[in-house]
Nucleic acid binder design. Sequence first.
RNA 1: UGGGGAUUGGUGUAAUCGGUAGCACGAGGGAUUCUGAUUCCCUUAGUCUGAGUUCGAGUCUCAGAUCCCCAACCA
Length: 586
Amino acid sequence: MNETEAPTRHFIQQLVDQDIASGRWGAPGDGSVVRTRFPPEPNGYLHIGHAKAIWLSFSIAEEFGGSCNLRFDDTNPAAEEDEFVRSIIEDIRWLGYRWDGARDDDPMAGVRFASDYFQKMYDHARELIGKGLAFVDDQTPEQIRATRGTATEPGTPSPFRDRPVDENLELFERMRLGEFPDGSKVLRAKIDMASPNFNLRDPVLYRVLHAPHHRTGEAWKIYPMYDWAHGLEDSYEGITHSLCTLEFENHRPLYDWLLDQLDGVHHPQQTEFARFAPTYVVTSKRKLKQLVDENHVSGWDDPRMPSISGLRRRGYTPESIRAMCAEGGVTKFNAKVDYVRIENSVRDHLNKTAQRRMAVLDPLKLTITNWDELGEPGRIEELDAINNPEDEAGGTRAVPFGKNLVIERADFIEQAPNKKWFRLAIGKEVRLRYGYWVRCNEVVKNDAGEIVELLCTYDPTTRGGESPPPDGEGKVRKVKGTLHWVCADDCIGAEVRLFDRLYTSEQPGKATGDHLGDLNPDSLSVVTGAMLERELAGAAPGDRFQFERVGYFCVDPDSTPERLVFNRTVTLKDSWARAADKGEKR
RNA sequence: UGGGGAUUGGUGUAAUCGGUAGCACGAGGGAUUCUGAUUCCCUUAGUCUGAGUUCGAGUCUCAGAUCCCCAACCA
C-alpha cells in the first residue's frame, strides 16, 4: 500500500460495493438502490453511542446515492413515549441528517413507525401459522424459561407445539381481541428446541399485552417481539442493508429464517458492527436514566451528560461529533474511545469557527497608575481585536481599555518561581492582548493578606500590544507573556459553569459494580463573578465563543439578556499546566 | 463447561493475491507565535501465545489464551 492509493474502505463499504457491482439489489452499478435505516426504540434519549449508528447508516446511504429511513421501533408500549420520539427527531436533525421523506417545515414528515405495520405483521403471522411454523403456547413465562434448556442441553418442546393450525389461528385471533390476560398465551415460532443458538429454540413472536400504545391506542392487545417485527419492518420498507450492533449477531439466523418462510417478501441483509465505548462515560439507558431520576444531573440535557442533547447544550458541534464517528472507523472490534479524542474533535472544529472574546473568570483588579498622567484622565480607548485568527472573514472588533482593568487571578504571582513564568509578577512586564504592555510595581493586600489589587504602569508606545520602538542601541524590549483582560469600567458580568468529567474512572463502576460510586463530586463548578468584554452582551443561547487563553464556551438556554450564563464546552490545551504538574511532582 | 464474534504501538485504525508493518490521536522533544492555543518538524512504541507450511506469514494450517455477546412474554 502506498500513499497514492485511494483511502481504504471499511468492511461495510466493501460489502455494499460488492452488492452494487453484482446487482444484488437492482441493476449492477446502481447505488441509488441502497436503502438503510436507523431504528431507535423511543424509550430514552439518544446518546453519543447512538451517534455512530446514525452516522453509519446515513453516511452509507448518502455515499451511494440511496436513502436512509428513520423508523421508530415502537413494539413495546410499556416503555415508550412520545416525548422520546420528539427528542430523537430533534437530535437527529441537529446532527445534520435528513431521512427519507424529511421536510424542514414538518419534523414528523417521512418518519416511520413499526406500529404502522402491526396489521401487516399480524397477517404474516397468520401465514406462518398456516404453514405449521408457529403455534400458540399456553405455558407461563416461567414454564417457557424452564424448558428452554441450557448451553449444553437442548430445550424440551412445549406440550402445545403440535396444536392444529385451525386452533392456532383461532386462538391467535382471540389473543388479538384481548380475550386472554397478559402472560397467559404467546405465539411461538416452531424451529428447533435443540439449536445451540437460543434464539432458534421456538422464539416468542407475540405476547399478550393490555397496554395502551402511544400511536395505536387500544387497538392491539398483542404486540410483536423484536425478532418478528424487525425483519418485517426492514422488509416492508425495502431496506437493503440493515446495519446494527454486534449484540444482534446471534439474532441474524432468526432474522433470516423468519423472512425465508414467508412468500414473496423482500429479504434485507443484516450486517453487524461494533459500537464504541467512550471512557469516563456511561451509555446504558438504565444508568443514564438513573442519573436523571436520582438528580445526580439536572436532566437529560445536563451539559455533563453524554446524551446528544447534553452535548448540544455543552456546546459541542454536530460537525465535531460526525468527524469523531468517521475517525473511529467501522469494525467488529468493541473499541473504547479515549475521551480526549472527543474533546479534541470539538476543539478542532471550534478553533476554526468560534469567534474569540476576552473573559476573566476569576478577576483580580489591575490599576494603571500612570494612565491619567499620560493622556486625558479617565479616558477609555478603543482598541482593535481580531475575531478569529483562523478565519480572516471574521473581521475585528473594538475592545475598551482604560485605567481600571481586571486580569485572571491565576495570571499573577508575587515572586516568579523561575524564568519559565511568562505571566505577571512584581517587577515583570507582560503584554495585555490587543492592549498595552504593563509592568507590575506593587500589590495591594487586604487585612487577610490576600492580594486585592495590582498597581501597574503601562507603556504608551505599545498600543495595540505592539512591540515598543527600539532603544538607542537598536535593541527591542521583549515580553514572554500575553494575558487576557477586561476593562472594569466597560464590561458585563456573567455566570460561567465549568464542567469536568462526570466520573473519575475510565469505566465507571467497573471496579465496584456501581457507577454512582465513581461519580466525580467536582464535575460542576459555578463561577458567578466572571467579567466579560462588552461585545458579548448580545450573545444568544447556543452561541459559541473561544474565551482567549481559557477555553470554548457556549451560551446556555438559562441565559437571559440581563444575566448571561455560559457553559464551558472544553478547555484549551494547556501545556503550561501540564509542565507545572510535572514540576510539582519533582 | 454449548453457540456466535473478536484480538496489530498507550488508544483507534490500515496493510484486499503470502512480499518494506503505514496513518491518526496520545506521549516526549524542538521551531514559530500578540492565546503556554493554533500551525510546523522530529522522536517514541505494535502483529495475543506456541507450533507448522513457505525463499518469505499480520495474512495460510493446527493447537491454545484472553475479551465481548447469547438461556426477557426488552430492543
